[in-house]
Amino acid sequence: MNQRKDTYRAALRREPDTAAPRHAKVARLHTRYVRVTIELDPALPRELGRWVGPPVSALLRAGAAALRPLTGTS
């Protein structure tokens, strides 16, 4: 049991091998039993804009088309 615990703790202390330099934003959470690393890609805003842009513009066009007859009859 102690050997397994020591192996686990050694694995937590060990840093991962990285060949390429990191350009991402990194947030780390270290507690006694949990170690979490979150990396955000710097191109994330561009990718979100590419994926979200067309549906949002379609919704805006549909909303404008629906409101056009309502505003024209007053």
Rank of each mutant, 00 (worst) to 15 (best):
V26C: 06
A20K: 13
T37Y: 05
R68V: 01
A19W: 10
Y33V: 00
R68W: 03
E47S: 10
G49L: 11
T73K: 11
P42G: 03
P55C: 06
R13M: 05
P21F: 03
V26P: 01
V26S: 13
A10L: 04
A27W: 07
N2C: 01
R4C: 08
H30N: 14
G49A: 09
A10P: 00
A11L: 15
A24Y: 07
V56A: 03
R46V: 11
A11S: 15
P16N: 09
R9Y: 06
A58K: 10
L67P: 00
G53I: 07
L60D: 08
R14M: 15
V34R: 13
R46E: 14
R61S: 10
E15N: 06
P21D: 12
P69S: 05
T7L: 10
L29A: 13
T37R: 15
R46I: 04
A27K: 07
G49V: 00
L40A: 11
V52P: 00
R13A: 13
V26R: 14
P16L: 11
T71Y: 13
E39W: 07
R28I: 12
L12R: 15
P55R: 04
L12K: 15
L44R: 11
R50F: 04
A58D: 13
S57M: 06
K25M: 01
A10G: 01
E15F: 02
A10H: 00
T71N: 12
S57G: 01
A58L: 14
L12H: 08
G49R: 10
R14K: 14
V36N: 08
H23G: 12
A27T: 03
G63M: 07
T18G: 01
H23P: 01
A65Y: 01
L67C: 11
W51T: 13
V56N: 00
G63T: 08
L60Y: 01
P42A: 05
V36I: 14
L48V: 09
V26T: 13
R13E: 15
L70I: 10
P42L: 06
T7P: 00
